[in-house]
Amino acid sequence: MKNPIEQLNKVFDSRIRLGIMSALIMNNRSNFNDLKELIQVTDGNLASHMKTLEEAGYIQVEKGFIGRKTNTTYAITTSGKKAFKSHLDALEKMIRSID
């Protein structure tokens, strides 16, 4: 049997990135401030994790304006959904392995 640990996605090692993905999968689009409040991290911290997810191609960023204020919104991509799903499956396998 293949070791399920190998199927765990390195990108999702971080709890913050996992939190971001969980939130985005439930919402079509979230903006930076909502995510920040939800996950309770600092601006810089969230931004750097967002960058990682964006570089992995899991999220799609859109920069816009509300009045004069910048409004950055994020959405999960199809490949992001797939990656998250298989990560969950891998986690599930790990739990089942104790049976």
């Binding site: 709890r15 996992l18 939190g19 969980s22 939130a23 999968i25 439930m26 919402n27 979230s30 939800l38 996950i39 969950l88 986690l91 599930e92 790990m94 739990i95 392995s97 104790i98």
Partner: peptide, 20 residues
């Protein structure tokens, strides 16, 4: 290990609920 995976799944569930 399984316990850690379980905790991670708990976190994911909590975050999904909180965000929606």
């Amino acid at each position: 290990n399984p316990a850690q995976s379980l905790e991670t799944l708990h976190d994911i569930k909590r975050m999904m609920e909180r965000s929606s």
